[in-house]
Write a protein that binds this DNA or RNA. Structure first.
Length: 608
DNA sequence: CTAGGGTTAG
């Protein structure tokens, strides 16, 4: 049975990553590629060793193709992360080869829709599946559960789940994850309690879903419970979720502990764990540690490079981001759409307009990436920051997308910075038509009117603002020392160090005013006396957190603060001054970006 | 010979 021998040879190849090419050549010589199962296996082996090009070539050159050929190639496209290709290639199955989808092909199509979040096409596939011969197939059903879960429709997933006769772990994990990632904790937990086998998969589905829905604290609690239950972590996937959770809540000390755990379990060098660690350190504002993990990696993919590039850019290290990009390209790693978001952002930060334009062009022409709205927003931000306001507005008008709120906000911020009141008013109105209840837009508008001496308009904007029920999220900041962490809300310092905190801020205030500091009260919402406004600013949460940090941290160390809202202009000035007075580096992660305050300067170059 | 669950970057 030479054919079976060859099939086995190929499978061995796949297992040991040895050269498929030689066997392939051998088969061609013997004319064996005419034998369909052998050609299919060949294509599959190429795909499994991430050689999509070769897999596609074998597929294209097959004189006859069957269902297996199609299932193999559609699966290969999914695995290479080209789900849109899966969907676009599939119609040829009928038009070229007159074949209808079988159960394997249905599963691939559903998976492609799931990964794309393409619910419309997913429902079409679902409908076709229902009228097919395979309408009762449990494997396809569990894929459908996963698809609805990933598309954010866990209830639709539940309906399919209920119809599965033999529910195995795949269907259970899909539905649990579906509820968890929507933040529907009650349903997720109820189902989790009913899983016949509470193994690592089940825990991972629950924990990762909770991280995705912003329930990091619950996720940590469950992770600890899982460890207590003695579930051994034989697969690192759950760790990437936990590292991601540390990144999301930006608790550096916690992140370090999780890092230690990944080392202890022997997964630090696993590619996607190191990638998650690089991102975690960057998000926890320790860009030095992020770079350190990155440098120690033995293998780096596009995600690794992009994580460090984006991290460097966000921390104001634009030149470093750009040189990392050069290094990435010379290492033969192809950038993707996310990489360019980071790169253009970096250019924008230091006003490298031409470099940014060049990168945008190279993305389209050299890498064939179709820019999305976010790229246009970055480009416009780049132009706007450097004062090319008209050109920035041209981008908005000529791009193939409808501008969203961040797009208008980027342009508005540029108008404000360059003092173009006329354009600012026009843009603010666009913004208000998208998000009418946004108080900060009114404040900005009012300030612009005031600065252009349009007093009537200014008071009208203020009036509108007061009439609005301002549901402004309360601002808070927190500081984490590992052993303890403290949360500060504006206007209150209810911890035991209250007097010391206040005393220190008062002391610093005296020194700041000696250096010429004048409070900028333009961001204070309500109409009140100047003194009252200044008092409000004095109690902003980030200042409380910094003062507390100065009192409690080890002298000479970096003070790291996380704030839920954006830092106001006055606090920004104050933090710069404080960093100079006390000769300490202060890093603030706010809702939008990172500020490294050092020697009286900020890494954001006062533009944020 | 082909398929389903848990995965990192904006």
């Amino acid at each position: 049975m030479p054919i079976f021998h060859h099939l086995r040879q190929l499978q061995e190849c796949a297992k040991h990553h040895s050269s498929v090419k030689q066997l392939h050549a051998h088969f061609i010589k013997l004319g064996l590629t005419q034998f369909l199962p052998l050609a299919n296996t060949l294509s599959n082996v190429y795909a499994k060793s991430s050689r999509l090009q070769e897999a596609l070539q074998v597929f294209d050159e097959m004189p006859h193709r069957d269902h297996v050929s199609w299932a193999t190639i559609l699966t290969a496209l999914n695995q290479a992360n080209f789900p849109n290709k899966t969907l676009s290639v599939f119609p040829s199955m009928f038009s070229l080869d007159s074949l209808l989808p079988d159960d394997f092909v249905f599963a691939s199509l559903v998976k492609a829709c799931a990964n794309l979040g393409a619910i419309k096409q997913g429902k079409q596939v679902h409908a076709n599946y229902l009228v097919s011969l395979f309408f009762d197939d449990d494997v396809i059903k569990s894929s459908l559960v996963d698809m609805y879960a990933k598309c954010g429709l866990p209830d639709d997933g539940r309906a399919v789940f209920n119809s599965i006769k033999l529910k195995n772990m795949a269907s259970w994990t899909a539905i649990i994850n579906g509820y968890a990632r929507k933040g529907r904790k009650k349903e997720a937990l109820e189902l989790f309690l009913r899983v016949p086998q509470k193994n690592l998969f089940a825990w991972t589905a629950l924990i990762s879903g909770l991280v995705q829905s912003g329930n990091e604290v619950d996720a940590f609690g469950l992770f600890i419970e899982m460890r207590r239950e003695g579930i051994s972590i034989i697969d690192p996937l759950v760790l990437s979720s936990i590292v991601g959770a540390s990144a999301n809540i930006a608790m550096l000390e916690l992140g370090k502990q999780v890092h230690g755990l990944t080392i202890g379990l022997g997964y630090e060098s696993c590619l996607f764990i190191s990638n998650a660690l690089v991102d975690m350190y960057a998000k926890c504002s320790d860009i030095v540690a992020a770079k350190d993990v990155f440098c120690r990696m033995s293998r780096r993919d596009v995600v690794s490079w992009t994580s460090i590039i984006v991290g460097a850019a966000q921390h104001g290290r634009a030149e470093e981001a750009l040189s990392l990009y050069d290094e990435m390209v010379s290492n033969g790693v192809k950038p993707n759409e996310v990489t360019f978001v980071g790169l253009i952002y970096a250019c924008s930060h230091v006003g490298l307009v031409d470099k940014g334009r060049e990168l945008f062009k190279s993305m389209v022409e050299h890498y064939g990436i179709r820019p999305c709205l976010q790229h246009y927003t970055c480009l416009l931000d780049l132009l706007g920051r450097s004062g090319y306001l008209d050109e920035a507005e041209d981008v908005i008008n000529s791009m193939p997308f409808k501008p969203d709120e961040p797009t208008w906000a980027a342009l508005l911020s540029a108008c404000k910075h360059h003092g173009n009141a006329k354009m600012a008013i026009r843009i603010a109105n666009h913004l208000l038509s998208l998000k009418p209840e946004e108080p900060s837009t009114y404040i900005l508008l009012s300030n612009i009117y005031s600065s252009s001496s349009l007093w009537e308009h200014a008071s009208k904007a203020r009036h509108l603002l007061e009439g609005m029920e301002v549901k402004k999220e309360p601002g808070y900041s927190y500081i984490d020392f590992g052993r303890e962490s403290q949360v500060f809300y504006a206007g209150e310092a209810s911890n035991h160090m209250k007097d010391e905190t206040f005393g220190l801020l008062k002391e610093l205030d005296v020194e700041m005013r000696r250096r010429g500091y004048v409070p900028d009260t333009s961001c204070v919402l309500h109409n009140m006396e100047q003194q009252e406004k200044e008092r409000q600013l004095f109690w902003h949460s980030e200042r409380l957190a910094v003062a507390y940090g100065l009192l409690k941290s080890v002298p000479g160390t970096v003070i790291r603060i996380v704030k839920n809202l954006r830092v106001c202009g006055d606090c920004h000035t104050v933090l710069k001054l404080i960093s100079d007075i006390v000769k300490r580096e202060i890093v603030v992660r706010d809702a939008k970006r990172y500020h490294h305050f050092k020697d009286g300067k900020c890494s954001c170059n006062d533009f944020w």
